[in-house]
C-alpha cells in the first residue's frame, strides 16, 4: 500500500499532470490546424513519470529528457507559454524557435536538454553527473529514456561508465511497451531490469500510472545516488495513449490494449485517490481542471499572437561563442 501523503501534495501533483495533459492536447490541436510545424511526440498517458520524478528533485539536480520531452520540461518548471511558443516556432519560445519540439533546452530550470536522438539523454545526464559529483553539493542527474533505448550504444556504454566512476545519476526508463511502432518483445532480448543488474546497478520497477508510487520510488533512488551509492535505475510501466509521432495512428496496438490502459489513466488514478482515499471534495479537483483549462486557453491565444523570429539573425548569429 502506497502512502499517499498529504492531500495538498497530491493535489499539486494532479494539477501539474493536468497541465501536461492539457498542454499536449493543445499542441495536438494546434498541430492538426497546421500551426505546429514539423512533428511532435506527445507524452499523453505518461504524465505521472515526469511529475513523480520531478517531485523528488531539488535545486542542485539536473535532468535530460527525450524528444518526447514536453512533460519533463513542464514538470521541471519550464514556462508553459515559452514552451508552447517554441512548438509554434516563435521568437518568444524557450529556445527562441531555434530548437523545436524535440530539442528543448532550459538550463535555468535544470533541464540540460531534450534530445532528438535516441540515447542522447543518457549521455547528457551521465556527463552532468560527472560535474555534479565534482561540485560536491549533492546534485543528482536524471536521464529519461524509453525502453527502446536499451538497445542503443549510449545505454550500454554510459551505464558501465557511470557505474565504474560511481556517478550520482538516476537512469529512468519509461517502458511504454513500444519502440516507435514496434512492440518491445519483437526487437528486444530479455527484460529491461536485467541489463542494469548485470552491471551491479540497483534497479527496480514501478507502476508508471501512479504518480505517488513513482515519486516514492524516485525519492528513494535519487536519495541513494545523492548519498554516494552510485547510479540507480528505475523502470516505470507506462503507456502512451497517442501515436509515436504525428503520423502514427497506433495500428500496431493489440485489440483492447489502449482501452485497458486508459482505465488506469494517471489522472484518473490520482483523482480517485484524492477523492476516495484522502477525502478531497470532487468539486475542488474539478476547479483545478477548470483553472488549467483557462490557462491553456490564454496560452493558445498568446502563442498564436507571438512574434516569429527575425530571419536577420541567420546573418548575425555565430556558430561559436565569443
Amino acid at each position: 500500500m502506497v502512502d499517499s501523503g498529504p492531500a495538498d501534495a497530491l493535489l499539486d501533483m494532479y494539477r501539474r499532470m493536468r497541465l501536461i495533459r492539457d498542454f499536449e492536447e493543445l499542441v495536438q490541436a494546434l498541430f492538426l490546424k497546421g500551426e505546429v510545424p514539423g512533428t511532435t511526440h506527445l507524452c499523453i498517458g505518461q504524465e505521472a513519470d515526469a511529475i513523480g520524478v520531478a517531485s523528488a528533485l531539488g535545486d542542485e539536480d539536473r535532468l535530460a529528457g527525450t524528444y518526447r520531452g514536453h512533460g519533463v520540461a513542464l514538470a521541471l518548471g519550464v514556462d508553459p507559454q515559452a514552451l508552447l511558443d517554441e512548438m509554434l516556432g516563435r521568437a518568444t519560445g524557450v529556445c527562441g524557435g531555434r530548437a523545436g519540439s524535440m530539442n528543448v533546452i532550459d538550463l535555468s530550470n535544470r533541464l540540460i536538454g531534450c534530445f532528438g536522438i535516441v540515447g542522447g539523454s543518457i549521455a547528457a545526464a551521465t556527463g552532468a553527473a560527472l560535474s555534479l559529483k565534482r561540485q560536491g553539493r549533492g546534485g543528482v542527474a536524471v536521464a529519461f529514456f524509453g525502453e527502446g533505448t536499451i538497445n542503443q550504444g549510449y545505454f550500454a556504454e554510459c551505464l558501465n561508465f557511470a557505474q565504474v566512476l560511481s556517478l550520482p545519476v538516476l537512469y529512468l526508463c519509461e517502458n511504454n511497451r513500444y519502440g516507435e511502432f514496434t512492440p518491445y518483445e519483437d526487437v528486444t532480448a530479455g527484460e529491461v531490469l536485467d541489463r542494469p543488474r548485470t552491471l551491479g546497478i540497483p534497479a527496480e520497477q514501478v507502476d508508471g500510472m501512479d504518480v505517488v508510487a513513482v515519486r516514492d520510488v524516485a525519492e528513494g533512488a535519487v536519495g541513494r545516488a545523492r548519498d554516494g551509492e552510485g547510479p540507480q535505475f528505475v523502470e516505470t510501466l507506462t503507456y502512451r495513449f497517442v501515436g509515436h509521432s504525428r503520423a502514427d495512428p497506433g495500428a500496431y496496438r493489440k485489440q483492447g490494449e489502449l482501452e485497458e490502459w486508459k482505465l488506469r489513466d494517471p489522472l484518473t488514478v490520482a483523482r480517485a485517490r484524492l477523492v476516495d482515499e484522502l477525502g478531497v471534495d470532487a468539486g475542488e479537483v474539478d476547479a483545478v481542471d477548470r483553472e488549467i483549462g483557462a490557462q491553456i486557453d490564454e496560452m493558445r491565444s498568446a502563442g498564436l499572437e507571438a512574434p516569429l523570429p527575425d530571419p536577420a539573425l541567420l546573418a548575425e548569429a555565430s556558430e561559436f561563442k565569443g
Binding site: 547528457a124 556527463g127 552532468a128 542527474a141 549510449y154 561508465f161 565504474v164
Partner: peptide, 27 residues
C-alpha cells in the same frame, strides 16, 4: 582524480564530456 582512465567506450566518454561541459566542467 581530475585525470582518469575510462572504459573503451568512445561514445560514453564523448557523451560524458558533453554533459559535463554544459554543467560546469571544461573536459
Amino acid at each position: 582524480d581530475r585525470v582518469f582512465d575510462t572504459p573503451i567506450s568512445e561514445l560514453a566518454l564523448t557523451g560524458a564530456a558533453f554533459g559535463s561541459a554544459v554543467t560546469g566542467l571544461r573536459p
